[in-house]
Write a protein that binds this DNA or RNA. Structure first.
Lengths: 253, 253
DNA sequence: CGCAGCGTATCGCTGAACGAGACGAAGTGC
DNA sequence: GCACTTCGTCTCGTTCAGCGATACGCTGCG
């Protein structure tokens, strides 16, 4: 699972610079980019200038920041977009029924990528972000995806290292395997503070008839007042409705 | 208003290729990319390969398609993101009150860029897309932004060419100017099928105390059943609440 | 003052990127 | 079947864009 792009090509370096930005920082200085990327100072300087010229980066006070042009480009990505457009009404309904934080995620490698996150004023402070990633094994969405995924993938994840995110993260392959089996039996997956302390979650896979689930939907809330069991029906119904809508269209990847 | 990026640099060419994708197409063939970009066939071929290696593009059956990696990158763009995160709950509330299509947009040049679009099963088929653009003069959001914008910008737009999108698009500067004045008097802007036939819309600016509005919010619906006047209060209240929340934090650009 | 860290600018060297062109495969019309 | 087009892929010699070492001016700090 190599993270780094090809640094021998201009394009690889440019992408490396872009990916050096993290969600938490507003602006990043040139020096910081040099540190994070390991590229030569002059190179970062020059490429950043090019990136600004191409509207992928903006100059800001203390350095650079990802530009709105990048946002526009990202929203053109077709798979995520068509999935999102079809799913949005269903997610809205689910939100109205629960008034809790609703997620839509797809699998990419051993991670879940969140395609949408909607919530009201009362939403739980979850580490998830639209466009963000989380390991499969420590989120409800991830477990829902994994339970219905290809057996090879499941084995890969179970035998690979299971990163501990909180004291409650399940890092024992045996326990996780049993949980996944339970998911296929009940159709829903749970998470009990496994990705973030205080956060509990229930998810259901969006099945489209193909080998792998198309996505998964979850409802999350703070542990002290949120009972995931109470939303099993809603989540499962929403996921099923979305799944049949999607497979009626030919959005099967 | 030059559209084309710098074609003398690898980066410019790469971005040109990425921007050659439109929202409507799922996959684009190499030949089509060559046609749209005007680049040499070998160049597009080579660069596309590099873009795939850097996870900005995916190979698909008939050619290429924008990759999920680009989506992830785009969602990192900070201004849009922080605005979006704060605004989401307000948009949710507005949706629940109206159950019509809700938009959030910011100004970029002479266009509005939609940062969010939420709607249920009954939503009007609007040409807007999250991450998409529309001219300022023919949308409710655009008029709301324009009416409260800098006088120079307003003059620029009014004296520049006003593209006709539908038979109802206001292309007479005089009429548009009067409409904008009315917007500042009432605090809301309307659109009557000016960007798409059958679509009507009401919008309010999100003011943060600075010179320019931070964004604008709109509610849209199909003309035959949707009365924008009925949602004036809701839109205005939502925009005001969002504005004061935003200015309480230091998200002023 | 001296030093450190920053952004920016200069400048030869070199290999990455260039585009013309060749090639085979697949489709189309006759 | 054949001629012709269109497509994706690959090769190859040329060259200029990108490279990084280095230098410079600025700012803040002890």
């Amino acid at each position: 699972m190599k993270e780094t792009a090809d640094l021998d090509t201009v394009l690889g370096k440019a992408v490396t610079i872009l990916r050096a930005f993290r969600s938490e920082d507003r602006v990043v200085s040139l020096a910081e980019l040099v540190r994070r990327t390991g590229l030569h100072k002059a190179t970062v300087h020059r490429l950043s200038g090019d990136l600004v010229a191409n509207r992928l980066l903006d100059r800001a006070d203390g350095g650079y920041r990802l530009s709105g042009g990048l946002f526009e480009l990202g929203m053109l990505a077709s798979l995520e977009r068509s999935l999102l457009e079809v799913a949005m009404p269903f997610l809205q309904d689910l939100y109205e029924r629960t008034h809790e934080t609703v997620h839509l995620g797809v699998r990419e490698g051993h991670d879940v990528v969140y395609v949408a996150k909607i919530g009201g004023h009362r939403q739980a402070k979850a580490p998830s972000r639209t466009g963000g990633r989380m390991p499969l094994h420590c989120t409800a969405i991830g477990k829902a995806l994994l339970a219905y995924a290809d057996a090879d993938l499941r084995r890969e994840v179970l035998t690979g290292p299971l990163e501990r995110r909180t004291p409650h993260t399940v890092v024992a392959p045996g326990i996780l395997r049993r949980q996944l089996q339970h998911v296929t039996e009940t159709g829903v997956a749970f998470e009990q503070e496994e990705s973030a302390v205080g956060l509990v979650c229930v998810a259901a896979p969006v099945l489209g008839g193909g080998d792998e689930p198309l996505a998964a939907i979850s409802v999350a809330g703070p542990r002290h007042r949120f009972r995931p069991e109470g939303h099993v029906t809603a989540v499962r119904a929403t996921a099923a409705a979305l799944g049949s809508t999607l497979s009626r269209r030919d959005l099967l990847r």
